[in-house]
Design a protein around this nucleic acid. Structure first.
Lengths: 137, 137
DNA sequence: TTCAATTACTACTCATAGGTAGAATTTATA
DNA sequence: TATAAATTCTACCTATGAGTAGTAATTGAA
């Protein structure tokens, strides 16, 4: 019961970038060293974030990455959606495809409250909200 | 952000058994057909549940499986623990090994409440609580 | 123009979850 | 005792997540 490594890395990468909003561009080497994420894997993830339009990249010397919009306009849930890690409204904790009010799984009622709280956490938290909170990792 | 297939299957299998507490033994064929879980995979999971002492098995003709204790004494969290799917107290939503009060991740505060609710759901729900709830799946 | 620093692309390896196959073992019943 | 119905064991296969390697493409600066 946890997020994929890819999603965890992506959130940390973007939160770091939001925190350094003064720097126009941040490169992969800095991110990799600051966050202890393998360089090659980080650039692979970043390319997906660029394709998803959360990040813009500048290639070539003096290049790097920057957020494509205001940190307050990028929610954690936007990141999870890219990597299919978001919690869907109809998602069943026991993996039953047709779990709903009519035919529900054994844990349906107990799952409601934590599910809504998780969704709220992911949907309400923007990069601005979380940037600079806690330690620089 | 979801439980492993194995944990989902195991919970459904044990809930089904708790629901049929009148039958002294339930065999793998019945469980496989009732729950639409691949037979061979189901027996593999069941053998792990036997080794973990949540289930007792009777081999040979007329054999099958039964819960090793009262349904009210088996919590969903006991099942998750077998498959390393339980949520640990110190588990960080961003996968930071040393996330705590002193040096916490960017989502540490937001994660607190849903984490506690998830743990509560898993730790408080016994097989007796969930057996027979919802549809027979 | 050349070079070095940067991202992007392609393809691979490795580990693990999910699932399958077949034979061995056990045991009640005919 | 022989058989059939059941669990268990060993070994494998497949798909996917995680991570690596090498090269191509881009571009600012010397």
């Amino acid at each position: 019961m946890q997020l994929s490594n890819t999603s965890q890395y992506a959130i940390r990468m973007l939160a770091y970038m939001a925190d350094k909003k003064d720097s126009p561009l941040i490169n992969a080497t800095e991110l990799s060293e600051a966050l202890h994420i393998p360089y090659k894997f980080l650039t692979k993830i970043m390319t997906e974030l660029v394709k998803a339009d959360l990040v813009v990249s500048v290639r070539g010397r003096e290049g790097g990455y920057s957020l494509s919009k205001k940190a307050s306009d990028i929610k954690v849930d936007d990141i999870l959606n890219i990597f299919h890690d978001s919690i869907q409204d109809k998602q069943c904790v026991l993996g039953i495809g047709f779990c709903n009010g009519m035919c529900k799984c054994a844990l349906h009622d107990q799952w409601m409250e934590p599910k809504i709280l998780l969704q709220k956490m992911f949907r309400d938290s923007s990069l601005e909200d979380i940037a600079g909170k806690g330690c620089k990792i």
